[in-house]
Computed example of a mutant assay.
Amino acid sequence: MHQFKELGIWKKSRVFCSDIYSITTSFPNEEKFGLTNQLRRASVSIPSNIAEGSSRNSNKDFSRFLEIAIGSAYEVETQLIIASDLGFIDSEKLFLLSNQLNEIIKMISRFRSTLKI
Rank of each mutant, 00 (worst) to 15 (best):
Q3Y: 11
F4N: 02
L7N: 01
I9E: 01
I9H: 02
W10V: 15
K12H: 12
S13V: 08
C17R: 11
I23V: 15
I23W: 03
T25P: 03
F27Y: 08
N29F: 09
E30V: 10
E30A: 13
F33G: 01
F33H: 02
G34Y: 00
L35K: 01
L35H: 00
R41D: 04
R41G: 01
V44N: 04
V44T: 15
S45M: 05
I46T: 05
N49A: 03
A51E: 00
A51Y: 06
E52C: 07
S54Y: 02
R56C: 13
D61A: 09
D61N: 08
F62L: 13
F62C: 05
R64W: 11
F65H: 06
L66F: 09
I68H: 02
I70M: 10
I70E: 06
S72W: 00
S72D: 05
A73N: 07
Q79L: 09
I81V: 15
I82N: 03
A83T: 07
S84D: 12
I89R: 00
D90W: 11
E92K: 09
E92P: 10
K93T: 15
L94P: 01
F95T: 14
F95W: 11
L96W: 12
L96K: 12
N99E: 14
K106N: 12
R112E: 10
S113E: 09
S113L: 14
L115V: 12
